[in-house]
Write a protein that binds this DNA or RNA. Structure first.
Length: 302
DNA sequence: AAATGTCTCAACCGCACAGAA
DNA sequence: TTTCTGTGCGGTTGAGACATT
């Protein structure tokens, strides 16, 4: 029984989105919120499939997205998380507010992979490349299934059993727990792979805790709070949660100027099951849609 | 200046999963 | 329990940008 296509593809547009299409999609979602994606294109008057709309929104139009290259600290975090999680881009992205799985995946494939190879690290296993003959013998002898690393407590980045992208995504409870638990760097050493001496703080400057500026949702939202680094702590009280500063792209000044922080009222903060900060930009969209209408049209659609 | 090669990243594809009927 | 639908995810593609010859 073959799966039905996500939509009737006949007559549907593909390829890059136009500004007009973006406008329609944004307008629709601002007005109606995210509903059944399959219905979105019809209701929004788009000749796209729902999946395409969802992707466009989540990867590009969402107002809480950061744009631009990953910072050094973000990149280091991606490397560390990849060492633990493998190609689970969505899980990795979940630890980097404002970043999408697609963005991280692309960045990994185009930048980080090369960087690691250059440093003599196998980007798949996070182990040094060109092992010695002795190592190769040992690897052949132990070609049998690899035991999962006992290290799930965050003491280092060693080969993870599921680095194989072909591995089914279904994880056992313990693994799932480790994967979804918030990434809490205990100290700078957490970022340094025990097996990857080539990766050291000399190569990538560590961000000191005091350098991580987390803006207060109510008072400290200002363009000066440009750090995007986030750390999460399951013990933190909801009141302690603070919104990460969002680096608004120039073309996405959705709420008007950066000084105009009205838009933040639209975001509700919550702690998801993992104890991470979750942002739901839509919880108040409906209520605010009308007042946003004007701001939206100021939004510089290129 | 033109041709060619390389890189980047937005978008697409197909599979898997969860939940509803 | 089975089937269907909606959504999420990871891998791949291809157009455009950029670099090199």
């Amino acid at each position: 029984m073959g799966r039905q296509p996500c939509c009737d593809k006949v007559g549907l547009k593909k390829g890059p989105w136009t500004a007009e299409e973006d406008k329609k999609l944004i307008n629709f979602i601002l007005t109606n919120g995210q509903c059944c994606w399959r219905a979105v294109p019809k209701l929004a008057g788009l000749l796209r499939c729902g999946k395409s709309c969802r992707l466009r929104w989540t990867n590009y139009l969402r107002p809480d997205l950061k744009r631009g290259l990953l910072s050094e600290s973000e990149e280091q975090m991606v490397i560390d998380l990849h060492a633990r999680l493998g190609n689970r881009w969505s899980k990795i992205a979940g630890q980097l507010p404002g970043r999408t799985d697609n963005e991280i995946k692309n960045h990994w494939n185009t930048h980080i992979r090369k960087k690691l190879k250059k440093m003599g690290i196998d980007p798949l296993t996070h182990k040094p490349l060109n092992p010695t003959e002795e190592d190769q013998k040992q690897q052949l002898q132990h070609a049998a299934p690899v035991d999962p690393p006992a290290d799930q407590a965050g003491t280092g980045s060693v080969l993870v059993k599921d680095a194989d992208p072909q591995k089914p995504m279904k994880a056992d409870a313990e693994e799932e727990k480790s994967c979804t638990s918030p990434f809490i760097p205990m100290d700078a050493n957490d970022f340094v792979s025990a097996d990857s001496p080539a990766f050291c703080t000399d190569e990538v400057p560590m961000v000191q805790p005091d350098e991580i500026i987390v803006p207060c949702a109510s008072a400290s939202i200002s363009p000066s709070c440009s750090s995007s680094s986030s750390s999460s702590n399951s013990s933190v009280k909801p009141d302690d949660h603070q919104l990460p500063w969002i680096d608004w792209p120039e073309s996405m000044s959705l709420w008007g100027s950066l000084e105009d922080t009205r838009g933040w009222d639209l975001f509700s903060c919550d702690i998801d099951g993992d104890g991470r900060l979750a942002m739901d930009p839509f919880s108040n969209y409906q209520r605010a849609a009308a007042s946003l209408e004007q701001d939206y049209w100021n939004f510089a659609l290129l």
